[in-house]
């Protein structure tokens, strides 16, 4: 419905058409203001989610991240019901959930680990239940639920892009500030604590940051799909290299490429952006994982070939 007749002359029939001329395709894509907005928003979200998601994957907090992501849904539904701006709902709920999760002591394994997951699971389910209550109370948006859950990448306004940019820069600045000690605390919490790094405080600040990042991104990608941008590029990058700085940059690059490709392809096809986004990102992850296992296998073969020459040990 938003797709107007092709202004570039290529999609003159009204529907966007894909040609073999990539330059012309991209120009056709950029001719629409909503597409430019979508690409700008996607870029900001991909960079922020890539950087923060990288720490999330490193810290094995995928479950907490996913919970914070879906908590945005009741936030948005509640805000709509009360007539508040959507952003207030997203940020309010995501930050509140981050505080609840941060209040429970983190544990690596054992029985306290099971306590942690039970708390996170309950927070998530209750938040979503509150979401459906808000939807019920506010009779108007039975059809809008899908938009809240799965996002509306193609309806981004100029104001939203500006707010996104400000929030993204803020989140990245805080991350840059706590990045070094956070990395230390994430890799070896015990040693970091012994060295005087405030591990628990950092953990809480990181959860708040994660909450802010997903609140920011949910408005565009929807509550259910922001998690894909958090976890998939980061997991892909950490398959490819163990060096922190390089893999973080890689995570951002993978996130960017996947987002741009997904938006571009979705424009030329009748299927939703979310499907392409998750599929491309998952494809990258599987390729990286297969590649890593293949090289590990080759290395082991090579090592085995060397052993007989040195005499069997």
């Amino acid at each position: 419905m938003i797709r107007l007749a092709g202004a570039t002359g290529i999609g003159a029939s009204g529907a966007p058409s894909l040609t073999w001329n990539v330059v012309a395709d991209v120009r056709q894509l950029l001719a629409f203001h909503f597409m430019v907005n979508a690409l700008e928003a996607g870029t900001i979200v991909a960079v922020t989610a890539g950087a923060i998601g990288w720490f999330m994957v490193l810290r094995r907090q995928a479950f907490a991240g996913h919970t914070l992501a879906v908590v945005g849904f009741p936030g948005a539904a509640g805000a709509t019901w009360l007539g508040l701006p959507l952003a207030a709902g997203y940020f309010g709920f995501c930050l509140m959930a981050a505080l609840v999760i941060a209040a429970v002591p983190r544990a690596r394994q054992g029985s306290s680990r099971s306590v942690e997951t039970a708390v996170i699971g309950t927070v998530q389910a209750f938040a979503l239940a509150a979401g459906i209550l808000f939807v019920n109370l506010y009779q108007g948006f039975a059809n809008g639920v899908d938009a809240l859950l799965f996002g509306s990448f193609l309806g981004v306004t100029d104001t939203q892009v500006r707010v996104l940019l400000a929030a993204g820069i803020g989140a990245l600045a805080v991350l840059a500030l706590i990045g070094r000690p956070l990395l230390f605390a994430s890799v070896d919490a015990d040693v970091a604590a012994a060295r005087g790094v405030p591990v628990r405080l950092l953990s809480a600040v990181f959860l708040l940051l994660l909450g802010a990042a997903v609140a920011e991104a949910s408005e565009i990608t929807g509550s259910l799909l922001v998690f894909a941008l958090l976890v998939m590029p980061a997991a892909t990058a950490q398959q490819l290299t163990a060096r922190p700085r390089l893999s973080m940059v890689l995570a951002i690059v993978v996130g960017l490429v996947v987002t741009w490709l997904a938006l571009g392809v979705a424009y030329f096809s009748p299927y939703p952006v979310g499907f392409f986004l998750t599929t491309f990102a998952f494809g990258a992850y599987v390729l990286a994982a297969v590649g890593r296992h293949a090289t590990a296998l080759l290395d082991r073969r090579a090592a085995r070939a060397v052993v007989p020459a040195n005499g069997r040990a």
């Binding site: 479950f63 799909l225 894909a228 997991a235 939703p272 979310g274 599929t279 998952f282």
Partner: peptide, 14 residues
């Protein structure tokens, strides 16, 4: 798990 179900959710949208 996170990777797999994020993708499965994408399929769900499709």
């Amino acid at each position: 798990i996170g990777n797999v179900f994020a993708w499965i959710l994408g399929l769900g949208v499709l």
